[in-house]
Amino acid sequence: MEETRKNLLEVRDLKVSFFTPAGEVKAVDGVSYTLGYNEVMGIVGESGSGKSVEAYAVIGLLQNPGKVIGGSITFEGEDLLSYDEEQMRNMRGKNISMIFQNPMTCLNPVYTIGNQLMEALTCHDDKISKEAAKERAIRMLELVGINNAEKRVEQYPHELSGGMRQRAMIAMALIGEPKLLIADEPTTALDVTIQAQILDLMKDLQRKENTSIIFITHNLGVVAEICDKVSVMYAGKIVEQGDVGDIFYDPQHPYTKALLASMPRLDEEEHERLIPIEGTPIDLLDPPQGCNFGPRCKDCRKICLTKKPPYADLGNGHISACWLHFMDGAVKKEEA
């Protein structure tokens, strides 16, 4: 009974458009999900599917020419879209934090790690003393597994390795003890061994700090590792959503299936050939009338050409937007 429990974050029918000289780009077109306390949700999709834009809308970091043009974002019962810039600023870093993809460019090169960590505290709390802030910064760096934290706070970003910097980014995001952490491809820019370490760290911290996480990635393997539930996005829409087990072992939407088939899986005995998804994502400036995935779908039907599919309820909170579920006059789940 998801609905009865109070949720940390509810996003309903969120629409974000970029108004470019070439026309309106519907980057996010009617995205809905709920995120409970202490829950980790993955948002998966190819580049340009709107997953980052959706997250920026939640934390209020959309830049011109991007604008929220519809829907609602409710955080602990408060409507975030009605907040002004100053209220949003107070939310950021304190209640909602974000980690970004590239730790190489996301830290300001001209300030020390400590300075940037402390800033996350001091900009929300005028009274905190410098010493206390520094103490917190050091403790936080230790928590994310950085050795020699006393020395590291005095160092500049360029003196740290990529993995270290991402740890520092995580420390910076968590220092304000946020209720929600949005991680936008936090491991993409790192090499595989470091990726695993960072994922372990996040899993660990999530348990310790009771933070909810929205984990944005194009890597389904990462999702399986850390998430409770998954939303699969394609061209600005969520095409399938459900528990991580359902999505992985019982994918229903052709896009999810294609995505899974295109990824190497370690849990399967026989090594199947990887099948790439043919074609390229649609042009969001000029989306098709029918299903967005239609042009690339292996099982495209006539109805897919003209009409967008509604969500089919497949039980256990598992939904999928595909016409195939409505064949033969009944909502049908494909047998695994």
């Binding site: 950021r92 934090s97 974000m98 900009c123």
Partner: peptide, 24 residues
């Protein structure tokens, strides 16, 4: 990117300009 990080931390716009953007 680091300006986006600063904004995500909740740093005031004035401080973002005077501290993070200006020095760079």
């Amino acid at each position: 990117d680091y300006i986006r990080t600063a904004r995500a931390k909740g740093v005031k716009t004035k401080m973002i300009i005077l501290k993070h953007a200006l020095r760079n």
